[in-house]
């Protein structure tokens, strides 16, 4: 079986771009708090999802829908509705994190294929087996905290459950265990787990302070400072500059993005089923380019062509941008 390339779509036009560029699967979410990329202007209405599924299926691609935030106490209706809408749209799987939503989907929509979201941060054979045994989860998106060796061991340990694993290979990188981070709500009051937005744009300020340069703030906390005249980057909390022990540094993570392209052969050897590209907030031009290139790399890998070729193709994607292979290499820690 070929490695499955799972690609992001923040809008219907991005979905079409990803499918046309060779995505095996596309993932997306509804335009509300039920999905973890709830940025203004992004995502799908139930009608748009239905149309997107039709477009993808006609071209042999699958659609996976993320309903991967945690349901609000006493107000679970939007999540239940979202699960029903995924099934009604004929999507191929639903990506879920909350035990309450998993339980509901398993009970009331038994034919819906369940994927465990990275937001559930299941990183051990025991945790994965729990989700498989209890809710019938068929695939787990692994947290971005594991090394390739660990993924390999994990896959052999869960082989008997038949659960597939999906790993991130490209795009934004959370240095924290996903779904277990309250930094953003500490600064803004908005929990990514509940409303689906980390470092939300309505709490962002770019403050031009003359000779002191530009401060980027989130909820009033300075996340970074840029030289006068230099345009400032988006204040994603964990990518900011902070002072600890008398040192100023990008303490949590440098402003880099993940690129595990050179690790594709090792990931395949580690028993991974699917490769995920992050970036539902990215534009269709970017998505088409990344998907096309990764598809070529996967095809080259499958055809047994030398990896140098695939790496050369992917090198163009990251020109000028800073990248890391993240936790896949143990030294990241």
């Amino acid at each position: 079986m070929s490695l499955e390339l799972v690609c992001p779509a923040g809008t219907p036009s991005a979905l079409r771009a990803a499918v046309d560029a060779g995505a095996h699967s596309v993932y997306c979410g509804f335009r509300d708090e039920t999905n973890a990329r709830n940025f203004p202007g992004l995502n799908f209405s139930p009608a748009e999802l239905k149309e997107g599924v039709r477009y993808a299926h006609q071209r042999g691609a699958k659609v996976l829908v993320a309903v991967n935030t945690f349901a609000k106490a006493g107000a679970m209706e939007p999540w239940k509705k979202a699960v029903a809408n995924v099934e009604a749209a004929g999507a191929d799987a639903i990506i879920v994190a909350d035990i309450a939503v998993l339980d509901h989907a398993a009970r009331h929509h038994p034919d819906l294929r369940l994927h465990l979201s990275v937001q559930a941060a299941a990183a051990t054979p025991e945790a994965i087996a729990f989700y498989a045994d209890t809710f019938g989860v068929r695939r787990v998106v692994l947290p971005r905290v594991l090394s390739v060796e660990e993924i390999k061991k994990l896959n052999s340990a869960v082989a008997s459950t038949g659960v597939e694993t999906e790993v991130f290979v490209f795009g934004g990188l959370c240095p924290m265990a996903e779904g277990r981070c309250a930094l953003s709500s500490y600064a803004t009051g908005k929990s990514p787990n509940l409303v689906g937005v980390c470092s939300p744009p309505d709490f962002v300020e770019y403050c031009d302070e003359g000779a002191d340069g530009t401060a980027t703030r989130l909820g009033g906390f300075t996340i970074d400072r840029f030289a006068p005249g230099a345009p400032a980057g988006y204040p994603t909390l964990c990518k900011g500059s902070f002072v600890a022990g008398g040192k100023t540094s990008h303490l949590f993570e440098d402003p880099v993005s993940l690129n595990a392209a050179s690790l594709l052969p090792r990931l395949r050897e580690a028993g991974v089923t699917a490769l995920k590209i992050e970036g539902r907030q990215r534009g269709k031009g970017y998505i088409a380019e990344v998907v096309r290139t990764f598809r070529k790399a996967v095809d080259a890998l499958e055809a047994g062509r030398p990896q140098v070729e695939a790496e050369a193709m992917l090198a163009g994607l990251v020109e000028g941008g800073r990248q890391t292979s993240g936790a896949y290499q143990k030294t990241w820690r």
């Binding site: 940025f39 203004p40 939300p200 744009p201 309505d202 962002v204 300020e205 770019y206 031009d208 530009t214 230099a230 345009p231 400032a232 980057g233 988006y234 970036g279 907030q281 990215r282 534009g283 269709k284 031009g285 970017y286």
Partner: peptide, 19 residues
């Protein structure tokens, strides 16, 4: 250019209601 590049390419400057 996309929404991320909008901020990250450090060429455009933005103030006010970012959302």
């Amino acid at each position: 250019f996309d929404g991320d590049a909008l901020f990250f390419n450090r060429v455009l400057s933005v103030s006010g209601k970012t959302d």
